[in-house]
Design a protein around this nucleic acid. Sequence first.
DNA 1: TTCATACAGACGTCTAGACGACTTATGTGA
DNA 2: TCACATAAGTCGTCTAGACGTCTGTATGAA
Lengths: 257, 257
Amino acid sequence: MPQLVRQSGTAVWAQIAIALRAEIERGLDEGDWLPAEPELAARFGVNRHTLRRAVDELIAEGLVERVHGRGTRVLSRGLIYGIGRDTKFTERLAASGRTAQVTLLARDEIVAAGGVARRLRMAEGTPVLCLKTLRGESDLPYALTLHFMTGAAAEAARSYPGGSLTRHLRAVAGITLDRVESLISTRLPLPADALALRMPRTQPVLRIKGVNACRECGVVQEYVITQFRGDRIQLSVEDPEWATEDQGPYMEVRPQP
Amino acid sequence: MPQLVRQSGTAVWAQIAIALRAEIERGLDEGDWLPAEPELAARFGVNRHTLRRAVDELIAEGLVERVHGRGTRVLSRGLIYGIGRDTKFTERLAASGRTAQVTLLARDEIVAAGGVARRLRMAEGTPVLCLKTLRGESDLPYALTLHFMTGAAAEAARSYPGGSLTRHLRAVAGITLDRVESLISTRLPLPADALALRMPRTQPVLRIKGVNACRECGVVQEYVITQFRGDRIQLSVEDPEWATEDQGPYMEVRPQP
DNA sequence: TTCATACAGACGTCTAGACGACTTATGTGA
DNA sequence: TCACATAAGTCGTCTAGACGTCTGTATGAA
């Protein structure tokens, strides 16, 4: 691998970032480790600090992540998540040959207020069950979800031990939830959420607020707020099939003179 | 201002970031300049590099921004934590009594490749028209869009001068485009895009890739990549009506013991 | 075999100094 | 008065070195 030919006008770290990005996209797979910082610094003929500045950039793009004491690892290119009627996260992933884990982080009884009450079509002060779950695959968290549940769904969720929530609700109460409405926004995560998702605080999350109704009785029984890691998830509306790989800085257009 | 009392277990830069954040929130207004880096470094009794690392953190939070040659400035709070307006796409603005401006930034002929060719259902190498537009309201940009067009839409867009693209296409070619598919993701903006949107690089954008087909003939004629300022926009799927104000750190749940 | 320890290697942080690039204010000359 | 050159101040980048913290592995003792 040749040394970098420095161009004036562009910071060295920026040139190294470009070189590294190309190298990663060409030759490295998800999960691969980059060479160690001292080695890369030597290869590019720069100080380790300068190299770190370049890697900082790739981290900011969500391309790689640093793991203290181990190294720098190439991240997954991401997952396409379709927004539609169907709310089955685990089964959807399984269908695409991936194994999803759902971990129950917290279960709590609260009273509905503001947005929660409105979305669940109930009076403020009504008690609702609140679950907090973490979804991911093979130890890589994708999403952090807050579930506000009422009615039969809440009853059934009181015994939910983790794993597929869809399956549990079906098994225990014989109900299925369908997505009625979704609202999508983005933001930087709260520190605690970034920690749970094991992502840098500087990477945005996609936040989907969804209202789910019971298919059998038609009553709204769940309001979910899901935060997806922005660097691992894309949301597809309508037709998930066509969603493909393309990522990275999108095509640039030269302005007309 | 007292020197920092260093606590072991927390990086010095993190402690300085906390101190600075408190100081800014207590005593500084939007637009105020922070003391210069050497001065702050001296005040906290650390090297300038360490101080910069702390300021990097505040920048990542969107609290301040650095201006080369001038200093570090406190950003507008409203801009960062401002309430996103529910707006599906631009035309909805007019419906709600607001005036949206569309500025044509660039027009270019390119050849379709990769994702563009696939979304437009055409062979790679086929020429397409590419427009870059900036949408906003009264000088506040909120979306940057790249349009890849073909067929009659492209023909009509060659004379597009800015303003409502929908109206232009209808007037010139008598066609209307309908959204067929959407793919939503989030990311931090490219520097150039952040500049165009006049937002900090550290605030995420919502990126929507959309495929539009001609209503009259049913043929896909446009592929758009729109980047919305994440702090000004929420996307609604299905039922926009229920989208409301609630924002801010979403409800926190205390973990069960 | 099992467990605890030591060690090497990786990233994390901090310091120190130098110089470049950009902005603004100042002062000088026409 | 105006235009321009200059200087000072600010952030931006790069180098160099040191040491801390964390992880995985190898080693040795029980």
